[in-house]
Amino acid sequence: MELIDTILEKKNGVAKITINRPEVYNAFRAQTIKELIWCFREAWDDNTVGVVILTGTGEKAFCTGGDQKQKDGESGYDGKGGLGNGIGLEIENLHQTIRNIPKPVIAAVNGYAIGGGHVLHVVCDLTIAADTAKFGQSGPKVGSFDAGYGSAYLARIVGEKRAREIWYLCEQYSADECKEMGLVNKVVPLHELQQASEDWAQKILQKSPTAIKMLKLSFNADSANIQGITQLSMANLALFYQSNESAEGKNAFLEKRPVDFSTFRS
């Protein structure tokens, strides 16, 4: 596959996958998701690779979720009528690929991890963050949500009360705050982030690959039922994207004006 929105590098047993859309804070579109899935499967099939690192280009953003300029309630993110899950993004497939690849995935969060970008780091096995990174949700602000891994699995990590706070308030949290709540494993200065991720990858590579694989399968088993919830969530999200309420969130964001959902409470 010709990679346009991503970069794949393989070296010393590590596959590094970089979301490469810095002009939009590494927000993803349909093409981005397809490339990410391909990159993870390429790393999956390569027996010389034992660990995957997921990061973003630049110093500003890891990933800020779906590119709102690409979103359309009728035709989805792919412009083809929202085929598959109905929203035009193979996001369920990507989440499952990250979880199912029998190799640890380290999120190296170099900046904003917001919205769908926040969910991406949540589903990774480990997260190392730059001290400048910011985390949070934006879905309810722009007429969107992730009622699958982005909420249900998040609650497994940080607890119900904190997960509800993250989604209901849509505030942003520092890397240190996220480390305190168990959402981030380690915080380092920005200039040390990539090296710190490489160091952890090399430590994992020194361990038994079969043991690591079985441990990942075991960790995943307890939350495997969330996949079914995710399918229901995405089907409902596709319907929601066709509503005026969702459109208000998107339009307010693009027009850089305050959002007004008041008319949708009646």
Rank of each mutant, 00 (worst) to 15 (best):
M181E: 12
G76K: 08
W200N: 02
H118K: 04
L190I: 07
L126S: 09
T230Y: 07
D131I: 00
F135D: 05
N20G: 00
G58N: 06
K71N: 13
E177T: 10
L193T: 06
A152H: 15
I101E: 08
K141A: 08
A238I: 00
G13Y: 02
A108H: 03
F135R: 06
Y153D: 11
Q231M: 09
F264W: 06
R162C: 03
Y149L: 02
K69G: 14
V188A: 04
I114K: 05
P22H: 01
L126N: 07
V109W: 03
A163S: 15
K80D: 06
D146V: 01
D46E: 07
N220S: 11
S223Q: 05
P102C: 01
A27H: 03
A15Y: 03
P22F: 03
N251Q: 13
G81V: 08
T48Q: 13
Y77Q: 04
Q68V: 09
K216T: 05
A107K: 05
E2V: 08
A211T: 10
Y173R: 05
G65Y: 05
K16I: 09
A196K: 00
E192A: 13
E245I: 01
A235K: 15
I37C: 01
I226M: 02
F261Y: 15
S151L: 15
K69Q: 14
G115A: 15
S208Q: 09
T263E: 14
E42R: 12
G228R: 12
N236D: 12
A152F: 13
A61N: 01
I226S: 03
I17Y: 04
D72G: 00
G76T: 07
Y25A: 12
W167S: 13
V14L: 09
I101C: 05
L8Q: 11
A108F: 05
Q202M: 10
H121E: 14
R265E: 11
K34R: 13
T64I: 14
F62C: 02
F264Q: 03
I229G: 01
L205R: 09
A15F: 03
D199P: 02
C63G: 00
L54R: 10
P22I: 03
P22N: 05
L193E: 09
L94P: 11
S151T: 13
L94W: 07
H118G: 07
D199R: 07
K16T: 15
A43N: 09
G73N: 04
Y25V: 00
F145P: 06
G111H: 00
K71W: 15
G111P: 06
Y153T: 00
I19T: 09
K71L: 15
I128Q: 06
G73M: 05
E248W: 06
F240V: 00
G50W: 08
K256H: 07
Q206G: 13
G182S: 10
A27E: 12
L237Q: 13
A61Q: 01
